[in-house]
Structure formats: structure tokens, C-alpha cells
Amino acid sequence: MNDRLTALKLFVRAGRLGSFSSAGRELGLSQPSASRLIAALEADVGATLFSRTTRAVALTEAGATYLTRVEAILAALDEADHEARGTGELRGVLRVGTSSCFVLREIIPRLPKFLSAHPALRVELLSNDRYQDLVTESIDVAFRFGSLPDSSAIARKVIDGPRILAATPFYLEEHGTPMMPSDLAHHAVIVGPAHRSPTLSFRKDGRVASVRVESQLSVTINEGAIAGAKAGLGIAALSLNSVRAELESGALVRILSDWDFGSMEVNAVFVSGKTIKPAARAFTDFLVGELRR
């Protein structure tokens, strides 16, 4: 029975990844062992689940149908095991996808508290500053920033924090402190993931002020924008939650704080149509509580 369960888990990952060897590595199996398990599963099922070439494997029509059913069964089994224990204890592996900045600044510092309550759980953090594919990368929950595009994914808002502008005290001493949004036209503004457009818009007392800015530096990761600001390369557009430590230490100074620069949502995203893994639900609840405190 254990071999059959392993084979089913292997089948799901191989179907999503298009590779027996990659799926086998995730489960600690060699490529020959993975191939044998899949062949045995096909024999038990009585159907060819994969078409094979020298370069890749792909699900057959029967395999694609079978995968949909098996994923639901494995998720339901995980849920049943969790409920049967009746202790709230979480086991197995939780795969979390998000940006490197969020992992380093928000998740890892809070992990000891969560893992101490669930010693049998293993967490895998997949940090990447692009949107991960929840299905092919087998991610149980992903934390994403900004308004979500139309998607079949299930989303839950975790926190909604303000966007801000910040620079080093040295930069402001050398170049002056902007007092109005229009002053930013005379400054280098680092464009990062918190705000990618060269046009910045602000609101105050019903007024809207927009200004086009230029910079020698644009970055695709929040840590890059923070590092650029700390290096004195300009004023960075950031999310307040991501830069609290620098503001509290005085390494960076917030500017134009009396103007509303918009907000940055953080959402927990789950694959639609799949039962949410108990560990993913519990970790999201935990993080929501911690971040909203």
C-alpha cells in the first residue's frame, strides 16, 4: 500500500513536471526506481498513463484524467489524516512560494514560532522574484504582491500596507528633501516592484498630483530597490512593510509621508479546484495573525 501511495505521488509530480527523474528527485528516488514505480502503476491501472520519448514524458489522455482524480484523492487523504489525529498537529511537507524579500524579512523570522508548534512538519521555501506556477512547482500556497490578475486561483488577502518613498539622510542632505510631489522631478527615483511606472501619483485632501520621474536605476526585486536607496542612488518607491527595519534604524528616511502614495496588497494564493492542504491553511492563518498584529 505504501508503494502504491508513493507511486501515486510520483505520478502526480511526473505529470506536472514532464519528467520521471525530476519527480523522483523530489521524493528521494533514483530515475530507474521512479520509472519502475510508474510502470507498475500503469500495470495496476491497466492503462498507459504516459507517452515516452528519449527527451521527455507526457501524459496521455487517460493519464490527464487520472491525474485530476488522483490529485483530489491525495489532498482528501491529507485532510483526513489531519482530522483523524484530532490534535491540530501538522505533518508532511509544506511548499511555500514567494519573493526573496518576503521570505527573508517576513517569513523566516516568524518560522520558529510556527515550527515549534508543529515539529513533524517540514517547510520548503521556494523564493523567486517571478510568479511561480503553483501547479508545475507543486506549491501549496504562494504569497503574491499587488492586485492579482484574473485567475482561476483562490486568493485570500493577507495584508494591505501603504507604499512609501524613502532615501538615506545623506542623499537628502546632498540633494534636498522633496516637500511636494512635483519636487521629485528633480530627483533620481529608483523604480522597483513596488511601483514600476515612471509616473508617480499621489492624493491629499481630494487632490491628485502626478509627476514623471527618471532614474539611472530600475530593479525587479524589492531588495534591489532597498539596496539602491541605502547606497545613495536615489529615492526608492517601496512597500512600508518591507522596509520597516531600515526606517526604525534611521538608515532610510520616509519622505512625503503626508501624501497618499497608494497601497500594496499581499495575497495568499492557492490552486483552484484542489483541496487546500491543512498545513497551507494553518500557515496562512498564522501569517495573517502575525502581520496584522
Rank of each mutant, 00 (worst) to 15 (best):
Y171A: 10
A268C: 07
W259A: 10
D183L: 03
R110W: 00
R95Q: 05
L200Q: 04
I226M: 11
D129M: 02
D133T: 01
G289L: 06
S182L: 10
L256D: 07
R163V: 12
A72V: 05
A120M: 12
T54S: 15
G46W: 06
R156Q: 15
A142Q: 08
I235Q: 05
L94P: 03
R244F: 00
G15V: 11
D183Q: 02
R196G: 09
A7S: 15
R292K: 09
F114W: 10
S51A: 14
G192I: 07
A185C: 01
T98D: 05
E83R: 15
A7F: 02
R16M: 07
A64K: 13
T48I: 15
R144S: 08
G28F: 04
R85E: 15
L238W: 05
G232D: 06
A185D: 02
A231T: 03
S218H: 11
L49C: 08
D285A: 13
A84E: 14
L8R: 15
A245H: 11
R52Q: 13
I226E: 10
P198L: 04
C101T: 13
V243K: 02
R293E: 13
A40M: 09
E174F: 00
E248V: 14
E26P: 01
S210C: 00
R196L: 09
A245W: 02
V211Y: 09
L111N: 03
E265F: 07
D133A: 03
S19C: 09
T48L: 15
L252N: 06
F283Q: 08
R52W: 03
S218W: 03
R110K: 11
D160R: 10
E71R: 14
E248F: 07
A185T: 04
G92Y: 05
N241L: 13
I73K: 12
D160L: 10
T6F: 00
L291I: 06
H186M: 10
R212C: 03
F143V: 06
I164K: 06
P119A: 12
D129C: 03
F270V: 01
I221S: 13
S152N: 13
Q216H: 11
L49T: 09
H175P: 06
A76P: 02
L247A: 03
I235L: 06
V135H: 03
D205R: 13
Y171T: 10
A58I: 01
S100L: 01
G97C: 08
L74P: 12
E83I: 14
F270D: 02
E79Y: 10
F50R: 11
G97K: 01
V158E: 00
P178D: 09
L126R: 14
F143P: 07
S239W: 06
D81Y: 01
L115V: 14
E79G: 02
K9E: 14
R212L: 07
I226Y: 05
A227F: 01
E89K: 11
A7K: 01
L291D: 06
L126I: 13
L200I: 11
H187T: 05
H82R: 15
S210Y: 00
I139G: 04
R16P: 00
L247K: 04
E106Y: 00
P198I: 04
Q132R: 10
T87H: 08
V12Q: 03
D3W: 02
R130D: 05
R292E: 08
N128T: 06
L165C: 07
K157H: 00
T65H: 12
A120D: 15
A58E: 12
H186L: 12
L104Q: 14
